[in-house]
Design a protein around this nucleic acid. Structure first.
Length: 300
DNA sequence: CAAGTGCCTTTATC
DNA sequence: AGATAAAGGCACT
C-alpha cells in the first residue's frame, strides 16, 4: 500500500444514475464534495467520483468496487415499473430518477443510524465526522484529509466522556453498548445478509438504541433487504398526505394526533409500505422520502 | 432577539 | 396495550 498510484478510470452508465441525488438523499452521511469531485471513505479506503452525463469517472477504487457500492446491478427501470403504483410515485420518480440505494458497510450503517435518531441530517453528519476524526484512521487523497469509520474495537474502548465530545448526547450509551456487544461476541453483521428480513430485523432489534426504524434503515442500506420500508416523520407525512385512503379514518386520526409513532402504528405503516410497493419497497421509500422533503420545503 | 419547535426515534415508566 | 415523558444540542422561525 506504499506509494501506490491511484487508479483513474471511468465507466459507462447504461441505466439511470444520478450521483448527486444518490449521495445527497440522506442515506449516507460522510461524502464530501471538493471542487467537482465527491470524496468518500468506504472501509479503509478513500476514493473519489464524479459524473459526466452517462460517464462515471472514479479514482482510487476498482471498477468492480464502484459497481458494487453504487448497486449498478439494480435494474432501475424494472424497479420503477414495480413501484410506480400511483401518481405520487410517478412524480417522485420523474423528479429523482437515478437516485440509487447504496451498498453500505453494515457496521458503519448500524452506528450511523443509532446516531441518527431524532437528529437532522446536518447534525448527523457532524456527529459522524467527529467520531471518525477522533476514533478513525486518517487517509489522504489529493492533499485532503479523510478519516475511516472507527472499528468496533475503537468505539468499545472509548470512554463515554470521549464519545460525548462527539455531540452524541444521550446516544453515547447506545453506541458504546452496541460496540461492546459486537466486539464481545465477535458478532458478524454480514451473516444477516443471508437471513430473511424478519430474522435479520429481530437480530438487529436486540442492539441497544435500535428500534424498528433504525433496524429497517440498516436492513435496506447495508443488508440487501430492498423490501425494507423505514417509517420516519417524513414517510408518516407522506402517508397522511397521499395514502390516508388506505387506512381507516380512526387510524389516520391517531397518527395525526400523536407526535411520535407507537410500535403498533409503526408496524402498520411499515406493513402498508411493504405490501403496497412490493419487493422494492425500500426504493419506493427513498423516492417518497426525498419527494416529501422537497415538497414541504418549497411550500413554506 | 428570545423562546419555541423540530429533528430520518428509542427507551423507561406508568 | 397504550399513552407519555425524557433524552443533546443545534438550526430555524
Amino acid at each position: 500500500m506504499v506509494n501506490e498510484r491511484p487508479i483513474m478510470a471511468q465507466l459507462h452508465l447504461s441505466l439511470p444514475f444520478d450521483l448527486d441525488f444518490t449521495l445527497c438523499c440522506g442515506q449516507t452521511f460522510r461524502w464530501e464534495k471538493q471542487d467537482d469531485w465527491w470524496y468518500g471513505t468506504v472501509g479503509e479506503n478513500v476514493f473519489k467520483v464524479r459524473q459526466n452525463g452517462d460517464k462515471l469517472e472514479f479514482e482510487n477504487a476498482s471498477e468492480a468496487f464502484v459497481r458494487r457500492y453504487f448497486r449498478f446491478s439494480d435494474d432501475l427501470p424494472e424497479i420503477f415499473s414495480q413501484i410506480n403504483k400511483d401518481k405520487h410515485m410517478v412524480k417522485a420518480i420523474e423528479q429523482f430518477k437515478g437516485l440509487r440505494i447504496l451498498r453500505q458497510d453494515p457496521w458503519e450503517c448500524l452506528i450511523s443510524y443509532i446516531c441518527a435518531t431524532y437528529k437532522n441530517i446536518a447534525a448527523i453528519k457532524r456527529m459522524l465526522l467527529h467520531l471518525s476524526r477522533k476514533f478513525g484512521k486518517e487517509v489522504v487523497l489529493d492533499g485532503y484529509s479523510f478519516f475511516t469509520f472507527p472499528t468496533p474495537m475503537k468505539l468499545a474502548k472509548a470512554t463515554l466522556e470521549n464519545l460525548r465530545e462527539c455531540e452524541l448526547g444521550y446516544r453515547v450509551k447506545y453506541v458504546s453498548q452496541t460496540s461492546k456487544r459486537i466486539l464481545r461476541n465477535d458478532y458478524d453483521l454480514e451473516h444477516l445478509k443471508k437471513a430473511t428480513y424478519d430474522h435479520a430485523k429481530e437480530e438487529l432489534l436486540r442492539f441497544p438504541g435500535v428500534g424498528p426504524k433504525v433496524a429497517d434503515c440498516v436492513l435496506l442500506f447495508s443488508l440487501e433487504k430492498l423490501d425494507a420500508f423505514p417509517v420516519d416523520v417524513w414517510i408518516r407525512r407522506a402517508v397522511l398526505r397521499h395514502y390516508s385512503g388506505s387506512f381507516p379514518s380512526e387510524f389516520v386520526n391517531t397518527i395525526s394526533r400523536h407526535k411520535s409513532l407507537s410500535e403498533a402504528t409503526y408496524r402498520r405503516l411499515n406493513l402498508f409500505g411493504r405490501q403496497y410497493f412490493g419487493k422494492y419497497a425500500g426504493y419506493a421509500q427513498e423516492y417518497l422520502y426525498h419527494y416529501e422533503r422537497t415538497q414541504t420545503r418549497s411550500r413554506s
